[in-house]
Nucleic acid binder design. Structure first.
Lengths: 215, 215
DNA sequence: TTTTAATATTTAACAATGTTAAATATATTT
DNA sequence: AAATATATTTAACATTGTTAAATATTAAAA
């Protein structure tokens, strides 16, 4: 029967949507089987007819959130001049996504999830979202090819560390300070990409990105 | 009465020690009021006579763990040649402390704790533990004074990001790979400290740190 | 269309958790 | 030794995830 599958998929959607909305709004702490089922309009036990357990349900949100993140980064940066400028803007938009939804950061990076296959979606999310622009920079000779992997890694760990401290430890305490740190860090990582260009120039171009459009 | 205070302090110690041992061995997931009380040799409700709640108890471990970390870093690096070598070894020892006790990393960086005063103990732990060596490098002209703060920040966020991914997301999957990443990252951060020195030399000296003494 | 079988959903129940209040045991004072 | 204060434990409650039994709903058969 095809109807069965359609209905089953719809039911899963109700629970998934409820879960995603709660993670977006309140983070993982607000999640419980009962609160999710409430929002979905069913009794708590119904969830177990469509998901193995609550972890199963929550982890299924990861893929959707990843795509939402990718979409938002793409939308926010498609008008930027290609190359380092867009690359920086993309990393910035990636970070801003998690600033906007700390609950998704919690799910992606703080929650313990036992080696499940979607782990790579998270671990490689930044690299994958920016991959095309890294390649562009390499192709245009903006960044030396042999430096790309190292720069990716530096960007990755710096951004994850920065987000961890800002979102989970309130250090720095304001978004403005966070942005200054972000700019300084990313600037340093990318400034040596074109040795013939003065680092000051790159520096200024980055700082000129407008500040404070997050609540 | 002084006896009262001594006994109270002792009681607190029993619960604190039980908690610390469990965090070290199994992480936060193994903690419960009942399991802590069991290990301490008392009933679960007794805890509430000495601590406000279980969070109070757990957060009191932070200061002790910080001092343990500092001690371990100091012990493991006191024979290293002062300057960049020791600085790198200290950051390495700091990271290794959390590799050795992932539960303490969980408590320090992953657990949500509402703005309590000990937050700075965590946020500034790496900087404080290494402070003297940074100062030494500045005083000896190994690192330019105006670059110190930037380098501290880069080191901080890189190490936190790296630990987050390695301990909480199993990326990379082996300690050896983790070490390679660690070396490459720290090397890049510190390599420009002495522009007259070839980066290759610094590179080799760092990679020569022995590998694989963690389980 | 009515009865029966399959399926979907909910309610009841259990074990584990943090926490508080009542009960009991222990120590201190008179 | 009795009375009182203190320390500790047991009982109880609310909340959590989960499973099994009960009920309601839908589909199939008559």
């Amino acid at each position: 029967m095809k109807n069965k599958e359609i209905q089953e998929q719809r039911m899963r959607g109700y629970f998934l949507d409820a879960t995603k909305e709660m993670v977006r709004a309140e983070g993982l702490k607000s999640l419980s089987v009962r609160s999710i089922a409430d929002k979905a309009g069913y009794s708590y036990a119904t969830m177990y007819s469509y998901f193995k357990d609550v972890n199963d349900l929550v982890f299924l949100c990861v893929q959707d959130f990843y795509e939402e993140c990718r979409q938002q980064v793409t939308d926010q940066t498609k008008k930027k001049e290609r190359g380092l400028k867009r690359l920086k803007a993309m990393v910035r938009a990636y970070a801003d996504f998690f600033v906007q939804y700390p609950g998704i950061f919690e799910l992606f990076f703080l929650e313990r999830m036992g080696n499940f296959k979607e782990s790579d979606v998270i671990n490689l999310s930044l690299d994958r979202i920016c991959e095309e622009e890294w390649n562009y920079c390499a192709a245009k000779g903006i960044i030396r090819a042999e430096e790309i992997e190292g720069m990716k890694a530096r960007t990755r760990y710096t951004i994850f560390g920065l987000l961890l401290m800002y979102l989970n430890r309130r250090a720095p305490s304001s978004y403005t300070e966070f942005l200054h740190l972000f700019n300084a860090q990313l600037d340093t990582i990318l400034e040596n990409s074109r040795p013939e260009q003065s680092s000051t120039t790159v520096n200024n171009s980055l700082i000129s990105i407008k500040v404070g459009n997050n609540k």
